[in-house]
């Protein structure tokens, strides 16, 4: 197994994408999951459905619409380009945005069941003690659902590493910018560099195994 500096760069980029995506998902996922878990709104099933859709839709659906929406000639892409000089096609921020949408259910669903697993009386008790919802969230709910937080973080991270279709469609395969490990494997296989593809693949297997293991380890530890 030979590890070139290009491979290291690609792997680091992959980890960078997964980390950025996970951080944003954590920040966005907590309020979304909170709303879904506790809101009496009638819109809730629609929101839940929308968030779950990346689980079943082919990534190409998302990739296709991102390509259409985010290209600088399109409405959204044009506005972003002229207002912030931001391009979401062929750029790292674009991959982050796509990954956030694509991995959303992997963060929101564990958090949602985490919120629901906490007895309602705990949040109510906190309210009777004069605490705001935000204080309750921070001090009572989140500390009470650490396993759910861990699941959400790990699953989003791992799922982003495993992302392929969306990146293939809107990434542009730029080394150091949008060429992540999954794309690199595809490329290497296509030019018959099986050894390089194997190196990437083995590293991904190792990385994902070692980040997923703690989640399930913890689960079985709690059962026994």
């Amino acid at each position: 197994m030979e590890l070139t500096s290009e491979m290291v760069g690609t792997l680091l980029l992959t980890l960078k994408l997964a980390s950025a995506t996970t951080l944003i998902l954590l920040a966005a996922g907590i309020p979304i999951a909170y709303w879904i878990a506790f809101s009496p709104s009638r819109l809730r099933p629609f929101a839940e459905t929308l968030i779950s859709m990346p689980l079943v839709l082919p990534p190409t659906v998302l990739g296709f619409y991102f390509l259409i929406a985010f290209n600088p000639a399109g409405a959204v892409g044009g506005a972003l380009a002229s207002l912030f000089d931001l391009r979401l096609v062929f750029s790292f921020p674009g991959l982050v945005v796509a990954s956030v949408v694509y991995s959303l259910p992997f963060m929101v669903q564990p958090l949602q069941s985490g919120f629901r697993s906490i007895p309602a009386s705990l949040a109510e008790a906190s309210a009777t003690l004069g605490k705001s919802r935000f204080q309750t969230l921070l001090r009572v709910l989140l500390p009470g659902m650490k396993p759910a937080l861990l699941s959400g973080i790990v699953l989003s991270f791992a799922h982003t590493i495993g992302e392929f279709g969306v990146v293939l469609m809107i990434g542009g395969n730029i080394p150091g910018v949008t060429r992540v490990a999954s794309i690199a494997i595809y490329d290497e296989v296509e030019v018959l560099h099986y050894a390089a593809a194997n190196t990437y693949a083995l590293i991904l297997i190792g990385v994902t195994f070692s980040i997923l293991l703690p989640v399930y380890w913890k689960r079985s530890a709690r059962i026994w």
Binding site: P119, S121, L122, E124, A125, S126, A127, T128, L129, G130, K131, S132, R139, V140, P143, G144
Partner: peptide, 20 residues
């Protein structure tokens, strides 16, 4: 008025102690 602004104490049937 939100519960947190009502000056009261409440003891729940299941005690509702914060486990952590």
């Amino acid at each position: 008025l939100a519960t947190r602004r009502r000056e009261l104490g409440f003891v729940f049937q299941d005690y509702a102690l914060f486990p952590h």
